[in-house]
């Protein structure tokens, strides 16, 4: 296929049609395609056959980092950098470090969640071939689409297959 083609875009009528079309495409052995919808659709991950998100592990790392950074900072400050004795309490009064440790754990975990999600989704990506399509503008409101990308081995028959599974408004998207 030509070098400068991103893929073929097709529109579907309802979440139900989109889901069954995705299932059929997967059944026919298509891999490099994705469904686009204004809201997440239940069961679409299984229908398109994508692996579960690994975001949870990223957040775990962030939380562990925040927890140890928070506790480490407080211990270092209180026992070595700036020793203040308050009411005769020991310098290493770890009980008092719990709130700040907890807050920093949540803070780091939240940053890792958001920026981890951005990284996994490759956002921000302000240029994308699909965003040039006029018809595709309804994807954030009420439109349901599937695009088969030109990198798919069976891309040559993509146009016909999309019609076969119920797609309309077939459009070729330039890179």
């Amino acid at each position: 296929m030509s070098e400068n083609c991103f893929g073929i875009l097709a529109e579907f009528k309802s979440p139900h049609d989109l889901l069954s079309a995705a299932e059929k495409l997967r059944g026919k052995g298509y891999k490099n395609f994705d469904a686009y919808s204004p809201f997440p659709i239940h069961g679409m991950d299984e229908a398109t056959g994508i692996k579960p998100s690994i975001l949870g592990w990223i957040v775990l790392v962030g939380g562990a980092l925040g927890l140890s950074a928070g506790f480490g900072l407080q211990t270092w400050v209180s026992t070595s950098a700036y020793k203040i004795i308050v009411s005769g309490k020991p310098l290493f009064s770890y009980q008092a470090f719990v709130p700040v440790t907890f807050e920093l754990m949540v803070l780091f975990a939240a940053f890792f969640t958001v920026f981890g999600m951005f990284a996994l989704n490759k956002l921000p990506m302000h240029y994308h071939p699909l965003l040039k399509s006029k018809n595709f503008e309804s994807v954030t409101s009420h439109g349901y689409f599937i695009a088969i990308e030109s990198s798919d081995p069976q891309f040559n028959s993509a146009e016909n297959v999309l019609i076969e599974v119920g797609g309309s408004n077939i459009e070729k998207i330039e890179e």
Partner: peptide, 14 residues
């Protein structure tokens, strides 16, 4: 940020 409602995005997003 270039959001386009892709299912692969929705998955991580949710």
């Amino acid at each position: 940020l270039g959001w386009r409602g892709a299912n692969r995005h929705w998955q991580h997003y949710e």
